[in-house]
Design a protein around this nucleic acid. Structure first.
Length: 360
RNA sequence: GGACGGGUGGGUGAGUGGCUAAAACCAGCAGACUGUAAAUCUGCCGCUCCUUGCGGGCUACGAAGGUUCGAAUCCUUCCCCGUCCA
């Protein structure tokens, strides 16, 4: 259990992604009904718009977006990776050219921490350097060294702010890098451990490498992390992979997959993936997932959802997102249950079997 | 009755002698998506054959003839559609 200022969160958990202070396609009341106890939002995007100072003046991110439960903010480290053509990385930080208006911005470890304090998220991530995979060793080494230095600066900044303000109600997590090199991963973890973060993340994975390698690298890191601090594997994963990560000792995950795939007409169901735009569903009167209890599956048919997607209706994305987020959150409930019954290994292999075959 | 303009693949619509089975877009079909520059992107999209290849055959740009080595593109006639004149 993770006890945040905005409620307890049961581990292991999955965070729906709300980059720009909204989980695309879902109203917060729907998110709450679905049982989301924590969501993820983004430093870089909120800094550009509406601006962290604006959010602070509007009462902080929770109040601004009217989300009473926990929020984790990513640092912008992933944007170092995904906006590779719009930024320049140096030891000082990352210079971005805004994808919105072309303006230049400098994101440093201190700045990223400052922004997240202004946003008032429950968990803040340090700025890290996330690189592509596969990466040459020297580049991975450099990214680890820089990530460690940045983590130290972010930690210092955070502790200073804490002592100045009589403590902070925000946790700061370090992020392990190291690409696909086991020794670099271990070194990165050990260096971060010295900074004594309240939680640790594994970053820079699931960016193209095979799942087995993601697991291997994750295992290298979780083996070194303290048992009493949360471990967060960033940016994962596919439904059939989640239980594997949990088995490796991961407590927290986030991924755009359920929400993005939903907008692209891919539904995750107990029978595998359902590409609802397929012609085969045109006259299908079954719910998207017959054994799903979500409000979409209780009310609507595959034929109707397919129609909404074909017609380009907004409701298509809304309904599909609702279902997929329900699926992921329910998956986590099942995983927590499997852990209690000592049945996680079986659960994991069942998931792999199910998604390897695809829909019936 | 006359004068112009026009008829192109499921749709809109480029193309005025060979590089054109025919741009582009839409529709259709299939796929991808992992700390969100993503309601995005990719592939296929006349029929057919196989040794599945920048491969072969067939059919196709209103209809029928003709010119040409070669025609969606030029000529003739006809049929439609639009605008204007009487």
């Amino acid at each position: 259990m993770l006890n945040t200022p905005h409620g307890a969160v049961q581990t292991p958990f999955f965070m729906p992604v709300g980059t720009r202070a909204t989980v695309k396609g879902l109203r917060n009341e729907a998110l709450e009904e679905l049982g989301a106890e924590i969501i993820l939002s983004n430093t870089y995007h909120l800094y550009l718009r509406p601006g962290h100072e604006a959010v602070r003046k509007l009462g902080g991110l929770h109040k601004f977006m009217s989300w009473p439960r926990a929020i984790l903010t990513d640092s912008g480290g992933f944007q170092v990776f995904s906006l590779s053509e719009l930024r320049k990385v140096s030891d000082e930080g990352v210079r971005f050219r805004s994808h919105l208006d072309g303006s230049e911005h400098m994101l440093t470890p201190e700045k990223a921490a400052e922004i997240q304090l202004a946003l008032g998220s429950d968990i803040a991530m340090v700025l890290d350097e996330c690189i592509e995979t596969p990466a040459p060793r020297d580049k991975a080494e450099a990214a680890v060294a820089r990530t460690t230095k940045w983590a130290g600066r972010a930690r210092t900044y955070s502790l200073e702010q804490a002592s100045r303000n009589g403590g902070l109600s925000q946790w700061q997590f370090g992020i392990v890098q190291g690409a696909t090199f086991a020794d670099l991963r271990r070194a990165s973890a050990q260096q971060l451990l010295e900074l004594d973060f309240p939680g640790y993340a594994v970053g820079g994975l699931a960016v193209g490498e095979p799942h087995s390698l993601t697991c291997e690298m994750t295992g290298e890191v979780t083996a070194l992390l303290p048992r009493d601090r949360p471990r967060y594997l960033m940016g994962v994963g596919k439904p059939e992979q989640i239980a594997d990560y949990v088995a490796l000792g991961i407590d927290m995950m986030d991924c755009v997959l359920p929400t993005r795939a939903a907008r692209h007409a891919c539904l995750y169901t107990s029978e595998g993936r359902v590409l609802i735009k397929n012609a085969r569903y045109a006259m299908d009167q079954l719910p998207p997932d017959p054994s799903c209890s979500c409000s979409v599956c209780r009310r609507y048919t595959r034929a109707y959802l397919r129609h909404l997607f074909a017609a380009g209706e907004l409701t298509a994305a809304i309904l599909a997102t609702h279902h997929n987020v329900h699926f992921y959150l329910d998956l986590m409930r099942q995983i927590r249950e499997a852990i209690e019954f000592g049945n996680l290994a079986n659960f994991s292999s069942e998931m792999h079997a199910r998604y390897a075959v695809g829909p019936a």
